[in-house]
Nucleic acid binder design. Structure first.
Lengths: 132, 132
DNA sequence: CAGTATCCCAACGGATACTG
DNA sequence: CAGTATCCGTTGGGATACTG
């Protein structure tokens, strides 16, 4: 029988899927990945598992509604695991899956890009706003 | 006088800015960058300048309202240039700035990630939805 | 502590119609 | 062709109160 490696299958997927096309499922996945909270949660979890409250403190200003919602969809998409330890009070840990670890470099790259180029964007905005 | 290289200043910026902090301006920039349309427009322009209509055709399904809106904010943030050639009818070209070219690898990485890992996400969703 | 459930406002975003 | 303006439904997302 023919054997196809994981690398070959990934290559195939890249040919079959195209986010430029309307109706391609990757368009929906792309819109989930391009999310402010996702770009903060994935890097936050890269250092190791964190609890709900720890995440909330790390990502200052996030409401627990958005945090829970984000973690749920990340869990469903196989990027994050949710582990419940029964105790009083109950303890819930979130951690990146292998797939989540593969996404991490991409997410941290956006975050870093914003932090690194903030000043140049500010300059551009000032110039743009000052023109006739 | 002390001379600081561009690389040194970028390092400084990365220390001063932190998107994890509420109120840090990079939080707002991050939310602009994590946008489905931005993740499609930047890669679309990487091959060279395109006109409004060409972009709309490349990014299937985008409304001209969202396309114009996205291009405006990208222009203001210094990522895209807008060049008007007066003729009948008028011709408007959009192209990446040097800053836009620096963002390109990051944006194309997300798009590629979605296309490459779509199948694994599908599997994860099926598993998640099938559990008690 | 972790999570669900409402309420409610603002922003997103598509459809349509109209200018230069 | 490129762009603006308007309408209008949908979603995002915060605040609050309440359970295990």
């Amino acid at each position: 029988m023919a054997t196809t490696s994981a690398a070959q299958r990934r290559e195939q997927a890249k040919r079959d899927y195209d986010a430029f096309l309307e109706g391609c499922p990757t368009r929906e996945l792309l819109s989930r990945l391009t999310d402010k909270w996702v770009a903060l949660v994935i890097p936050a979890l890269a250092g190791g598992p964190l609890r709900h409250g720890e995440l909330a403190r790390r990502i200052a200003g996030v409401s627990q509604k958005m945090l829970t919602q984000t973690l749920r969809t990340l869990e469903r998409d196989g990027l994050v695991t949710r582990t419940v330890t029964l105790s009083v009070p109950v303890c819930v840990d979130y951690a990146l899956t292998p797939l989540g670890h593969e996404l991490f470099p991409v997410m941290v790259a956006i975050k870093n890009w914003a932090e690194t180029h903030m000043d140049r964007v500010f300059e551009a905005r000032t110039q743009f706003d000052a023109r006739p």
